[in-house]
Nucleic acid binder design. Structure first.
Lengths: 212, 212
DNA sequence: CGCAATATTGACCGGCCGGTCAGTCAGTGC
DNA sequence: GCACTGACTGACCGGCCGGTCAATATTGCG
């Protein structure tokens, strides 16, 4: 694919070469995917020679995995504050929804990278992500919901895992489909994630039927 | 006389070579993405020579666009029945949710293909898809919701476009995240899309708070 | 049948790919 | 000065890439 890249924003000097290589690789992999990015391109963007990239990372796969690993760590540490929330379940849901969407949008590159990797590496990678990256966060979200449900703050018929899936899925879908949604004349929330999040929680809390 | 090719599931004879090429390309592009698939691989899978592929399609891009075009047509014609639904808005929502998810899951390849293309071709492709593929379906879904709202079947504060986004997004997220969700011990609906769909509509209709 | 149009092919091209290698260079301890 | 180390480089490799082409098989039609 052509995909002309803009000016290589990473100049030759600056942080360590290794960091520059990792940053370039993250950007390029997130933009265009593993196969579409050449080691040459990564080296050029980082301002080093291709051979130097191979000096620091023993193969393209190793570099990719390193990029993915750091991306996952960054992504994972973001939502740790989730458990700290106090107040009613409703308040915590509002906070979570807002914070979660903001985190996704904040580092687009990481989100795209993970999304792309899941798409390309199928079920096996799905399992790895589930167990090593998202598992804890999802489980703790489910636990919060389940506790709230036992205290009567949540309707009995609700499956907490289903609700958690919906909360996360709505944000992920918003992120990845923004460029499509933007062109639907009926959609007015593409550029105001805050209002999207508010409407989401409102619907989840009260439903869409009249006379709540 | 092309002797019988060993492994590929599409043997040499059968439908026209063009159709075999399109089918192979669709499978491979959906599996691995544009850049990761070589014309040689497509040709082998289709049981023809690479040169023959170039005889029928003037370039790799042209072949890809053709695949995408047919995939979009298939995908688009599926949801046409949406407008036919009669009965209350609630019934129509149930039907739509069930049908929509089933359609996504039915031809996984098409879904993956479109998802991948949106990821790789950015905003420009997003606009094309919005205008040429999904626009009508989305607009008609929004119209159904808006009409129901005017008749009082839908709470007043609800944004119909938001609800439509949520309906579609929940299904899309379910499809693309199944391989992750499957490994969360709390999640029990990964292999029963019907129950997912039911729970989704239930939450959307009645909300999650007690005493509806 | 003959004959043109089409379908199909293997051989081939320049170019880029991931990766290797011999070697340069700056720093450091002795 | 000297030996050693690790960062770094340009040149190079075999192999595959998308794409071309002349030649051949196959078909359809008068």
């Amino acid at each position: 694919m052509p995909l002309v890249e803009p000016a290589p924003n990473l100049s030759a000097s600056g942080p360590d070469a290794v960091e520059r290589i990792l940053a370039s690789a993250k950007d390029l992999f997130a933009e265009s995917g593993f196969d579409a990015v050449s080691m040459n391109a990564i080296a050029e963007r980082a301002g080093v020679s291709k051979a130097n990239v191979f000096h620091h990372f023993k193969s393209k796969d190793a570099l990719y995995l390193e990029v993915l690993k750091t991306a996952c760590n960054e992504s994972g540490s973001q939502i740790d504050q989730l458990g700290n929330g106090s107040g009613t379940l409703v308040e915590r849901l509002r906070d979570f929804s807002q914070l979660h969407l903001a985190n996704i949008l904040q580092d687009e590159k990481i989100s795209r990278l993970i999304q792309r990797d899941l798409l390309e590496n199928g079920p096996q990678r799905g399992k790895e992500f589930a167990e090593q990256v998202f598992g804890q966060n999802f489980a703790s979200l489910v636990n919060i919901l389940r506790t709230g449900q036992k205290k009567g703050e949540l309707r009995k018929g609700i499956d907490p895992a289903m609700l958690a899936t919906l909360l996360i899925g709505a944000d992920v879908f918003f992120f990845q489909s923004r460029e499509v949604l933007r062109h639907f004349p009926d959609v007015g929330f593409t550029d105001t994630p805050g209002s999207y999040s508010r409407m989401l929680v409102d619907i989840l809390l009260h439903g869409i039927l009249p006379h709540p």
